[in-house]
Every structure is written in structure tokens, then in C-alpha cells.
Design a binder for these strands. Structure first.
Lengths: 124, 124
DNA sequence: ATATGAACATCATGTTCATTG
DNA sequence: CAATGAACATGATGTTCATAT
């Protein structure tokens, strides 16, 4: 079974895996895309935050989203000068996606609260 | 060597260890205290956030803060009906503490930014 | 060389066990 | 039993290797 409804026992901040999953789902909602392109997009997006997600973590997230029925994909042969086989991801179940994003939203808000509190409590 | 200036390679959110350390330092600044009492205080504080730090993690944080010269402690025999030997922690170097808290503040703010961005980017 | 994926390695942290008084 | 600490175990993630085109 994949990492579905799990939050770690102690309940500290949201895990990277879930964080990346919502970004992947949002991006694919706008436009189906393949893994490496999604990765590059994320790397670019987080540059100002000194956060650089690793390719393996992004692939793992995508694989889990497939296993859990959020995404589907089809392998296609890239046209043009290059002839690399790539996997394009599409949303499979929009309702499921929305439900998932909702739970992650709650965890993001909880995390936001924790960090805000730490700034409040420890800095005048 | 302890976990001093380390941030994980990918630069995702602030680590629990550092998060707890600033709380421990702040609490001890106000009032020297022993490990278990600090733990209970933290558990209480984070109850609304469904976050329950573990005792081992708090002790590890305290040990590192000693190793790195932020805290000192003395073992005392508890008076009263109980006769347990407990370790009371005191601030050792205020300037060092302030410097440390400053770097953690930056990481908290960076983390805050990341989470805010995730909420902005993925939810209308 | 690009894209994907698996294998392997490590770190951060959680869970359990031990000791002391 | 309260407090501390170490040992052990697991999970989350990073790094490296493999494969295909």
C-alpha cells in the first residue's frame, strides 16, 4: 500500500512527498506533461526558496499518484530529432484529486500555523 | 560533530531538531528547567496543532545544544517526596544563542514562504 | 545526451529498552 | 515511578547506478 492517508506519528510539518504531489496534480490539471518537464518546472519555481526537489522524489510521487488512481499515463515516442520514450501524465479522477488536495490543504494550513507560532513565540 | 550549520541538501522545510532547539532556548532563557518539564511544556503548547514531540528528540536537541556550547547544566537531587536526580539546563552563552536563533529565524521564514506559496499556487 | 526508474545509502526521527535513585 | 539516556528500528529522502533511445 502506498503512502496514502499517512501523516507521521509525531505530526510535525507536512512531508515533502505530499507537498510535491499537490504541485504535480495542479500542474497536470493545467496541462498534461511528462516527469522531467514537471521536475524542471518545480526546480525553477522553488529557486528563490533555495529548495531543489530531486528527480527521484518527483518520480516516486508520480508513481504513487498512479498507484492510488489519481493519474494515468501513456508512454509515447517523442517526435523530432530526439527519439526518447517519455511518459505523459494525465488526471485520471478529478474528484479524487480534489479530495486529496483538500486534505493536503489542511496539512499545509496546520504547518503554516506551526511555523507562524514558532516565529511568534521565539522572536519579539 | 553535531548538526550545527547543516541544512538538508534539497532545502525543503526546516527540520524538527532546529525547530525544537529554538523553543528550548527560549524557554530556558525565561527560566532554567529540566528536560522532562521542557518536554511537557512543548507537548502542551503544540496540542492544538496535533504535533507531539517525542522525548528522545527533545533530549537529543538538549544534548546537542550542550555540545555546541549554548547550554550548560547541573545535576541536582530533587527535594521533596521524590528523590530523582534531574538535570537543570541553563543558558551558557547568550550571544551564541542569539546568533543561532537568528539563523533559525531565517529558515523559519523561508519555510513560511514555501508553505504560503504552496497554498497560493495550488488553491484558488 | 535526455528521460525514466531502480538500487543503494544516509539522515532524521520514532519506538523500545535500560538505568538510576 | 519520574527522568534520563542509549539502542534499536523505520521512514523519508538523497545519491548513485542502470537502461533505453
Amino acid at each position: 500500500m502506498s503512502a496514502k492517508g499517512k501523516r507521521d506519528r509525531s505530526g510535525y510539518l507536512i512531508k515533502q512527498r505530499a507537498f510535491l504531489k499537490v504541485y504535480l496534480l495542479s500542474s497536470i490539471e493545467k496541462q498534461p506533461n511528462h516527469g522531467n518537464a514537471l521536475l524542471e518546472e518545480l526546480i525553477e519555481k522553488f529557486k528563490p526558496y533555495a529548495y531543489q526537489p530531486q528527480h527521484s522524489e518527483v518520480y516516486r510521487a508520480l508513481h504513487e499518484l498512479m498507484e492510488d488512481g489519481y493519474l494515468r499515463r501513456n508512454k509515447v515516442t517523442k517526435e523530432g530529432s530526439k527519439y526518447q520514450e517519455i511518459a505523459i501524465y494525465y488526471i485520471k479522477d478529478k474528484d479524487l484529486v480534489n479530495a486529496y488536495k483538500k486534505t493536503v490543504k489542511a496539512d499545509l494550513e496546520r504547518s503554516l500555523g506551526l511555523i507562524k507560532k514558532a516565529l511568534d513565540d521565539n522572536y519579539i
